[in-house]
């Protein structure tokens, strides 16, 4: 439902690590930025990142 944002992703930017996609990645307790799964945006009325 929530992924943590990891620096140094593809293209040098950031990647979001979701448990459903990377079950072995684990949770990063040091992560400071998080992203809600895009499929929930409309239900929760979230503002989209541009």
């Amino acid at each position: 439902m929530i992924g943590y944002i990891k620096r140094g992703g593809s293209g040098g930017g950031t990647d979001t690590v979701y448990q459903y996609k990377s079950p072995l990645a684990g949770w990063d307790p040091e992560a400071t930025q998080f992203r809600v799964h895009p499929g929930l945006k409309e239900h929760l009325g979230l503002i989209e990142e541009r």
Binding site: M1, T32, Q33, F34, V36, P38, G45, I47
Partner: peptide, 19 residues
């Protein structure tokens, strides 16, 4: 988990900080 939904709704944004 529904409380979590409520918190996310209040945050109102797709990306947010731990604080």
């Amino acid at each position: 988990w529904r409380d979590l939904l409520g918190v996310l709704r209040r945050l109102g944004r797709e990306v947010f900080a731990r604080a």
